[in-house]
């Protein structure tokens, strides 16, 4: 079912069940976000995606990532009030990671330079803003359930449950790819990948010996992705080179 409403005075359409944020972006309206990702269920942790939503006689400033589209609502993404609230939220987030590049770039758009608040970073991972996107992607998209929130209040943290090594992690690197502050450290060598304090061995390419993927990611892919093990024997570069060589032989 399609739902019709307005964003900044423009009439828009969205599938029922969709979010105001995704719809706004689809129509080219800019709304900032940090904890949002289309691949996972909305979570509403960072509060950066605030917009003004009027429903009947009620008008409120609320997060758009977890606000389901409704017929007839009026959304404003760019009022001075919306920006003031977003700016305040960002200033608070900045107190957790004052030097982070991604956050500072965003802050520059609000004319924020030095946050008024003292640094409150007690998280174990430098620059983590506790948005939980890594843990959600790991559980919902990968199905590895390697990460979780730990602790409470100001001791809240994201990471491996019960500390130590992440036992169910497959070293796929998705968490590092999606982290909005790029604070998850992943170190690759030609033969190993280190992430969350655990070191994985890479499957070595049959041709060049270079990295294909971690052994655990390969096992996981064979089980879940429906392609046989032969698909994961060589690295993309060698596969393409091999194909070019094959055509060369056929052509000559």
């Amino acid at each position: 079912m399609t739902v019709t409403f307005t964003i900044n005075g423009v009439q828009v359409e969205a599938e029922a069940g969709g979010s105001v944020l995704d719809t706004a972006r689809r129509y080219g309206f800019e709304v900032p976000s940090l904890c949002h990702h289309e691949a996972v269920v909305p979570y509403g942790a960072c509060r950066m995606c605030l917009t003004e939503i009027t429903r009947g006689k009620r008008r409120k400033i609320t997060t758009s990532c977890n606000y389901e589209v409704l017929p007839g609502i009026e959304v404003r993404t760019d009022t001075p009030e919306v920006r003031r609230h977003q700016s305040m939220v960002l200033e608070l987030i900045l107190a957790k990671a004052p030097e982070n590049k991604a956050l500072r770039d965003l802050a520059a758009r609000y004319g924020l330079r030095v946050p008024r608040f003292a640094r409150v970073a007690r998280q174990k991972i430098k620059d983590c803003i506790l948005c939980g996107l890594c843990a959600r992607v790991c559980s919902e998209s990968i199905g590895a359930h390697a990460l979780t929130f730990t602790g409470r209040g100001d001791l809240r943290d994201v990471g491996v449950p019960f500390q130590g090594e992440p036992r169910t992690c497959i070293g796929c690197g998705s968490c590092a790819s999606v982290c909005p502050t790029s604070c998850i450290v992943m170190e690759d060598t030609r033969t190993t990948r280190k992430i969350w304090d655990r070191t994985f061995r890479f499957v070595a390419c049959d041709v060049c010996g270079g990295p294909v993927m971690t052994e655990e990611h390969k096992e996981h892919a064979i089980k879940t992705a429906g392609l046989p093990a032969e698909y994961y024997k060589t690295c993309p570069t060698c596969r393409q080179n091999g194909l070019a060589g094959h055509f060369a032989r056929v052509g000559s």
Binding site: D22, C172, Y232, P236, C238, G242, L243
Partner: peptide
């Protein structure tokens, strides 16, 4: 669809022709 991608790199690893590269 960039907004849906979580950067797991599996597509690059699975393409039998090596036509997808992963931009780390």
């Amino acid at each position: 669809l960039e907004g849906r991608c979580i950067g797991c790199a599996l597509c690059a690893t699975a393409c039998p022709f090596g036509h997808i590269h992963f931009d780390r």
